[in-house]
């Protein structure tokens, strides 16, 4: 049975009719068109589907969409500021932390949650914060560097 729910994504409220067995990832990508959130392993291992729910990184492939009612959801599409990449996004580009780009939305959102809570993280804290995000282009060093630079420039 479909039900009408409201989801607040990147500050805007969307009304969507869904069945109980839809994940947040499916609703974001298929019903609302936020395809920046990637479907990787689809079983909670790779971190590509990471979004922020009430400021905390979670895996949207494991979250029922109905569990996100009333929550603030942030995706990669909401990161740009007046059409320009956020400082974190810019640092990822400047420091070559993006190769194929598939892990980047999740990486950037995990990093964003970290920097909000801890604006001056140590390298170890950065590595811990992105430990649930796999990059298969082996770009971890560049990614850690980019997050460090973004932290130093006071995002």
């Amino acid at each position: 049975m479909k039900q009408l729910i409201e989801l607040k994504v990147n500050g805007e409220v969307y009304e969507v009719a869904i069945e109980s067995h839809r994940t947040l990832l499916e609703v974001l990508r298929e019903s609302l068109g936020f395809v920046g959130t990637k479907r990787g392993c689809d079983e909670g291992t790779c971190g590509a589907c990471t979004v922020l729910v009430n400021g905390k990184p979670i895996l949207s492939c494991l979250m029922l969409a109905t569990d996100a009612i009333g929550a603030e959801i942030e995706t990669i599409e909401g990161q740009a500021i007046t059409g320009k990449p956020s400082p974190l996004q810019k640092a990822f580009v400047d420091y070559g932390a993006i190769q194929c780009g598939f892990c980047s939305p999740g990486m950037i959102l995990s990093a964003k949650a970290l920097l909000r809570e801890n604006p001056k993280p140590t390298e170890r804290e950065i590595k811990e914060a992105i430990s649930g995000n796999l990059c298969r282009c082996t770009g971890y060093i560049k990614i850690v560097e980019a997050i460090k630079v973004a932290a130093e420039s006071n995002v």
Partner: peptide, 8 residues
Amino acid sequence: AAPQIRNK
């Protein structure tokens, strides 16, 4: 697991 799993 990982931070995303511990948050949920």
